[in-house]
């Protein structure tokens, strides 16, 4: 039953090429284009600066010795940025299409008699989780492409200095980024089920995310909250995600206590499971014949 739901949702989304393209490819494409332009411009500016300064006469202004671009490091950058705001917002297009599409096109009545409702919802969530993985993978690939482009533009070589510890941290970082994206899209699911509106399922999470960002930037200092306080962690899953990322990075300068980490994980868990549970409960009793 769940397998049927996943296969049909994946098939349908695969035919929605516009949505899928924007969700998965838009940000990586912009990232690659921006990276190439940045490195090309930087190279040109640097060359101009060197020419103007007369490098030959002033050894102190010489172009630094070229260092190889570490692609493993670029992988790490990609993983660290895989759940950034832009990617999440563009992924909401796929989330809204998946979660609210059957309301928008009145197609629930075609599929709901032949499957149980929890499977129908889980099929959508699982498909979105797959799309999120795909988008993250493409973004990380884009990070590598930008690294290669930088090497090509600047004439630097490339290296791949992988370490066991770094790989483990990267895997954990990838996992928590994936959880963060799926968690964020749960708001889209809840709004879709309650409002039956594709636009609402697209924009309400954006507004909520924006509000949480404002709370973090402006509200917290005003309220006298610290970033590790329980209320801050619980109200802002984005902050919780950053906290978990910090714990994975285990930077000596900003250690994360186990209590703070627990709060952050609790926040991410609640923001994932509560909207999902509410959406499922609502959906179970919902009249799916309304237009």
């Amino acid at each position: 039953m769940l397998a049927d739901a996943i296969k049909s949702e994946a098939y349908r989304l695969s035919k929605n090429r516009m949505t899928l393209g924007f969700s998965v490819l838009a940000i990586p494409a912009m990232f690659i284009a921006g990276g190439i332009v940045f490195h090309t411009q930087m190279r040109a500016r640097m060359a101009e600066a060197v020419a103007e300064a007369g490098v030959g006469a002033q050894p102190g202004l010489a172009v630094p010795a070229a260092q190889a671009v570490d692609l493993f490091d670029r992988l790490g950058v990609g993983v660290a940025q895989a759940a950034n705001g832009a990617i999440m917002v563009f992924l909401l297009l796929a989330a809204a299409a998946l979660y609210a599409g059957d309301y928008r096109w009145e197609t629930w009545r075609l599929i709901s008699a032949r499957n149980i409702r929890p499977s129908l919802i889980m099929g959508k969530v699982t498909t979105f989780a797959g799309v999120a993985l795909l988008a993250m993978a493409v973004f990380i690939l884009a990070s590598l492409i930008v690294g290669l482009a930088e090497a090509a533009v600047t004439g630097q070589g490339v290296a791949f200095n992988a370490t066991g510890e770094g790989t483990g941290k990267m895997a954990l970082g990838f996992g928590i980024a994936w959880v963060r994206i799926v968690q964020y899209a749960m708001l889209s699911l809840l709004v879709a089920v309650v409002t039956r509106s594709l636009l609402a399922s697209l924009f309400v999470p954006v507004v909520v995310g924006f509000g949480q960002t404002l709370l973090g930037q402006i509200g917290m200092p005003f309220l006298g909250w610290g970033p590790t306080d329980l209320q801050a962690q619980l109200l802002m899953p984005g902050l919780a995600y950053d906290t978990v990322k910090g714990a994975i990075a285990a930077e000596a300068a900003a250690p994360v206590t186990s209590a703070t980490l627990a709060r952050a994980l609790l926040s991410l868990g609640l923001w994932t499971l509560v909207p999902f549970g509410l959406a499922l409960a609502w959906f179970q009793r919902q009249d799916l014949s309304k237009e």
Binding site: M1, D4, S8, Y11, R12, R114
Partner: peptide, 14 residues
Amino acid sequence: QVLEWLSLAHGLRP
């Protein structure tokens, strides 16, 4: 595609 999608949704190969 509609019929293929519904086939999958109903547990059939398209």
